[in-house]
Write a protein that binds this DNA or RNA. Structure first.
Lengths: 291, 291
DNA sequence: ATTTATCATTACTTTTCGTAATCTTTTAAA
DNA sequence: TTTAAAAGATTACGAAAAGTAATGATAAAT
């Protein structure tokens, strides 16, 4: 590894053009500067200075070294100064969650970013297993999941309840079992699970969603209600996904006698102190998930 | 300045998660690793590791330090490896010249760049005084000038002759003095100087260009012949600028009995060894300026 | 030609670095 | 609970290096 002290002497020398004055600038002796440059040359195995008597000019390697070293030295000294800082409204925060939460949160987090432009929101939609994996591998900072993670590296705490809703086309007044079976089921990646939870608690006729007539499928959370609004079937979805659907006139969300909700968990790396900006974003998320 | 040896120990520790194994990886003792981390923390005045018994996790500052330090250390080791290299077809070459030469050279240099995509051509058009200033300040690598520089830092060597041409609208067969005076003069930044050289040697009537009827001016080298091609006046220009003019049917360049040419000088920083890519570009330039 | 300014070299002092040995604490096992 | 082991922290010391003062050599200035 290049010795950065020698490198700094070399760069200062290039700027000052004078060994003695460089030494003064760096609070050392001329001899020291001379040795630093020579050691650098020895280590790199290249001439850096073309010496012409007491004058010198830069060799090709010297030019290159100086040009690139400046950036590196600057980065190093910036790092030294800023490493202790922990600004709550600056830097990138990487989140990952299943679609329904994301649909709810992402717009609010973007509006947080427009208030604090240095706070960069990186939000990815993915199913639970991907979320916990990403947290464990530290490729994201904050995750939301609809089930507790089983991984040791992931710490999960409940932060909200997501109501599950039965959604039919707006034309359906009373969603009795007969009506649902006639309509057919619009499925999504968690569709079977959600349907089991909500319909199992509200319809004695329910056995398993695989017995439904299946009328469609989408893994694009924002699009699942599209076929429902066209009268093509019914779906079971978290409330957040329903709220975010734009063509709300085409659909009807039904209040069933036995409400069912899923717990939403906040997932962060266990045993790692979060930086201030993460807490900023978590606070904002809680606000909107509970409000 | 942050000690990069300590920094490397810290980064390796973060990756390995284990003091003893980090020590093995770095061919040193566990005690050394421990001290390096402690010294870093002391120097930065921040906790980097949150120690939980023999486990540890990164503090906020630790995360930040690790994230940024990796890039810096990588850059340092890359620099170490590449500083001795001097590839003739890679890197940026910054040139500056007056318009006429630029008009000639720039297309050829661009085609050189398309043959060697890593060789980046940065070509700026500017008058002689700006060129020598830029060379002296090392903001460009290679300059072309139509006069020797007076600055000590700039080394000038003649590399080509630029013929000066009298250019009139195509309708003019014989450019006698009367005709020129009727047409009027289209001026440019070096117009007066060029006219003095060429017309002074060929017309006994010539006294000074300020006595011409002045019919136009442009400092955009590619556009000076525009008014000439429209029959609005005559101009005196280096041959290269004339060759590069697209609407050549509208103009006529006249061969006078006493040809005059200007010497073109290559300007480089004095006492500085040029890198290989500079010589590549200089060779290419010579080829086209003399060919 | 002489003086002065500047850089290189060398011998020596001071500082820093890294290790071995030891101590302390945590974790696991008995 | 006690004991054993494993891992990191601490400390003292020898080795290495960094930096200086003194000196030498050479180029520039007068």
């Amino acid at each position: 590894m290049i010795n950065t002290t020698w490198l700094r002497s070399f760069c200062t020398l290039v700027e000052v053009g004078h060994f003695t004055r460089t030494a003064e600038r760096l609070h050392m002796t001329q001899s020291g500067v001379s040795q630093h440059v020579r050691k650098l040359e020895e280590q790199l195995g290249t001439e850096l200075l073309v010496r012409q008597g007491k004058q010198f000019s830069l060799s090709g390697a010297g030019e290159k070294l100086y040009a690139e070293a400046q950036d590196i030295l600057l980065a190093l000294s910036n790092l030294e100064q800023t490493v202790g800082e922990d600004p709550p409204y600056e830097g990138t925060v990487r989140l990952m969650s299943p679609g329904s939460v994301g649909l709810k949160l992402y717009p609010h987090l973007l509006s947080l970013q427009s208030k604090h432009p240095k706070l960069i929101i990186d939000y990815r939609f993915a199913p639970n297993p991907d979320v916990e994996k990403a947290i464990a591998e530290s490729t994201v900072d904050i995750g939301f999941m609809t089930a507790k993670s089983t991984l040791a590296e992931v710490s999960c705490t409940p932060i909200a309840q997501e109501s599950l809703l039965l959604v039919t086309p707006a034309t359906v007044e009373e969603p009795d079992w007969e009506t649902l079976m006639t309509l057919g089921f619009i499925d999504h990646p968690d569709g079977s699970h959600h349907a089991g939870l909500l319909l199992g608690a509200n319809y004695t006729e329910f056995q398993h969603s695989s017995l439904f007539p299946r009328k469609g499928f989408s893994n694009q959370i924002g699009l699942i209600l599209e076929p429902v609004s066209l009268g093509l079937g019914f779906a079971v979805l978290p409330a957040h996904a329903v709220e975010a659907f734009e063509k709300s006139e085409g659909i009807k969300a039904h209040r069933l006698s036995h409400p069912v909700s899923e717990t939403l968990y906040l997932s962060v790396p266990r045993n790692r102190s979060l930086q201030a900006r993460m807490n900023t974003v978590i606070a904002e998320a809680k606000r909107w998930l509970n409000g």
